[in-house]
Design a protein around this nucleic acid. Structure first.
Lengths: 357, 357
DNA sequence: GTGAAAGCGCTAACAA
DNA sequence: TTGTTAGCGCTTTCAC
């Protein structure tokens, strides 16, 4: 390994001078010395030791990305939304000359330990529930930004206006003539995202003089759950003709599960999803959905972190506007054949640690 | 920050003893001292500085994951295959007590610089082309493993038997009665994965007494390209009735693009994909495809790396067996209406830096 | 303009 | 069983 000491020796100067040149503090160094040092560094293919610098200046230039697996047994980052976010975050972190470390979250204390271990400059969290945010803050004092977490002030977050998104989705369904509209998503009291989406859904219904109670069909965001959710929707006493679905992935699963039961989307049932993942456009029928700008979310997250790192701003919340993208899964309602199979009455819950209503 | 010096002071012992205890070298430490140290460490919420240890022992416990964006302008990790792989790799790296850093690749020299900077213990590469492998080896001497790279010996790689996968996919199509079968994928002379898949395709065709030449339809793996590929397939003089597609994402895009043109899968056209991503099962019709076990691929990659780290084995190649998953996109051929629009003759190429045939 | 010395937190080698 | 010394590669402080 080549160190500044090597360069210093080659150039016949002190380590100090080399360090100064290499860090652009060249005001106090002669042009000729500067050139000699730079040439030698290039010649020897010198690369600074990040560990040594980190130890010396007590900053690491590392940003950590901590993500919570969407569901128990979930294969890591299989969720496309998180995966895309991660890719985008990498770009911005890299562009800022920093390094990205990633961790699947365990408990808050352990996460905090891992961040401290590398003395990370900041961390962005994905998919954290509100109560965990508090724990993390207790254990940790590096700058943090939470993506899609609904939490109290004093902390940086970036998210979209989830309530508005599902409000508009619901309005679309209402204006197509639907009255019995399901809300399909997990039951997660501490997951603010879902709560907000439900709130928007409920508001739209109430404005139309409908009752939002009993409209919630509980489903996790996996393929298996899409199937169960479809069964629940069909068997539900409300006789749903449409659904607002909290994730594209789930919506696509529903289309499939319906198809297996002879129910076609949108002829027999209308759906609107959430996220506008790339595949939303590619499936047949293509998905009407609420778009969130993932790239912008990533950009904002890194910006919030940077602000705190350089102390230029206090923590703050950035709320992005969602946008309804109309494609092929919404049509006017059509009476469904009487649902024969209503044996399963109570909705099913599969959610890590969530209390069941 | 609390250091071993703090613990040493509290316990009235030397730093050395603390270090020994904390690293399990307690053979030479009295039980009582050991307990005092451990208690103090817990009490003070001590967390070792990874940078300091790294500097001292010249090992970082960092594994880097370097990925190449699948296509120009690609949003980072939007490719679900890579994203899942990444998630799985994180799990194994983490389980091995190491830390995962991720980098989007730029050029080999720069990549090497970034790895050296943190003195990473090893690196796994995703989506590297064969010629880049050589460059990386020149610039870098940490243990490396390449996923899905076809390269000469002396280096660790993990991949699947791509040729066999597409061979079997093609056989399926042949036995369903298809004779005019397209191979849809990018033109990438240095991308061994694609070459191998094409070779398997060609072999199956030849065994059936067919000519594989002129069967290659060039398409990148994006939505826009799926549309162009569909146009090319339709306009192609061969009058294709089926296609072997090198990625599920592309296959799904094709279904959609065909649908827009009134061609239904599998009634009018049969497809088999590659990867068996989760969504392959969820789209309608669900995709017949070649499954590769992504979790196993990740596990193998980390294992190969670990072997080299502890010096227990030389670099080697692990080849996993693919598996054909039959679903709903393959049926017997049916004569297509004469393809009216044959204005586009030559296939189109969109690939970063690839030479055009 | 340049250099010497000390220290970041840790471990390895050797003493005691 | 425990302590001392030195050093990993870098930056910072202060002196020349």
């Amino acid at each position: 390994m080549v160190t500044i000491a090597d360069i210093a020796r080659v150039c016949g100067v002190s380590k100090m001078t080399v360090s100064n040149v290499l860090n652009g503090r060249d005001s106090r160094v002669s042009a000729s010395t500067k050139k000699r040092v730079l040439d030698a560094a290039a010649e020897l293919n010198y690369q600074p030791s990040a560990a040594a610098r980190s130890l010396s200046v007590a900053r690491s230039e590392i940003i950590s990305l901590v993500y919570y697996a969407a569901a128990e047994g979930d294969l890591g980052l299989s969720n496309p939304h998180d995966a895309m976010l991660l890719g985008e975050i990498e770009r911005h972190v890299s562009a800022a000359g920093k390094h990205l470390m990633i961790h699947a979250a365990t408990d808050a204390a352990d996460t905090a330990r891992r961040l401290r271990s590398w003395n990370v400059d900041g961390a962005v969290f994905l998919g954290v529930l509100a109560d965990e945010v508090e724990q993390l803050r207790r254990h940790q004092d590096v700058p943090m930004v939470f993506i899609d977490a609904y939490t109290d002030g004093g902390i940086s977050t970036v998210g979209i206006d989830d309530a508005r998104g599902s409000y508009e989705a619901t309005r679309l369904l209402l204006s197509a003539g639907h009255r019995a509209i399901a809300f399909a998503g997990p039951y997660a009291p501490s997951a603010g995202v879902i709560n907000a989406r439900y709130a928007g859904f409920a508001r739209a219904l109430e404005e139309a003089g409908l009752d939002a109670d009993e409209m919630h069909v509980i489903a996790n965001l996996t393929f298996a759950d899409a199937d169960a959710a479809a069964a629940d929707i069909i068997a539900h006493p409300q006789g749903f003709t449409a659904a607002v679905v909290t994730a594209d992935i789930l919506a696509i699963g529903l289309i499939k599960a319906f198809a297996r039961r002879g129910i076609r989307v949108p002829d027999d049932f209308s759906l609107v999803g959430f996220d506008d993942l790339p595949i939303a456009e590619m499936v047949t029928p293509s998905l009407t959905t609420v778009r969130q700008d993932i790239a912008e979310k990533a950009r904002a997250a890194v910006e919030l972190l940077t602000e705190q790192l350089d102390g230029s701003r206090d923590p703050r919340r950035i709320v992005l506007e969602p946008m309804l993208v109309e494609r092929e899964t919404v049509a006017a309602p059509r009476p469904r054949p009487a649902s024969g199979d209503a044996r399963r009455r109570s909705p099913r819950v599969h959610l890590r640690g969530a209390d069941v209503a």
